[in-house]
């Protein structure tokens, strides 16, 4: 079944490229370098707070 074999070959080439090349070499999860969820949470919080000037906000004034 030549046609079926071609499709399987195509699928395997694609999956190999995805998981063995792109995933392992290029798409490393940034948070994987941290061991615990606490470290990951702290890293994300730091990223969230480093942007903009949050001193513009005031918690003493309510709308």
């Amino acid at each position: 079944m030549k046609f079926g074999k071609r499709l399987w070959l195509l699928i395997f080439i694609k999956l190999a490229l995805l998981f063995l090349v792109l995933r392992l070499v290029f798409f490393k999860p940034e948070l994987a370098e941290f061991d615990t969820d606490g470290q990951k949470a702290r890293h994300v919080k730091e990223n969230l707070f480093m942007q903009g000037n949050i001193d513009d906000g005031s918690i003493t004034t309510k709308d």
Partner: peptide, 29 residues
Amino acid sequence: FAINFACGVATGIILEFEFGTNWSNYSWF
């Protein structure tokens, strides 16, 4: 249908790779 399925299968997985690599703040949040 089979050709289209074989072509399309797993192309969405790259989006999930990108979540972890390029959009980690979002993925965690």
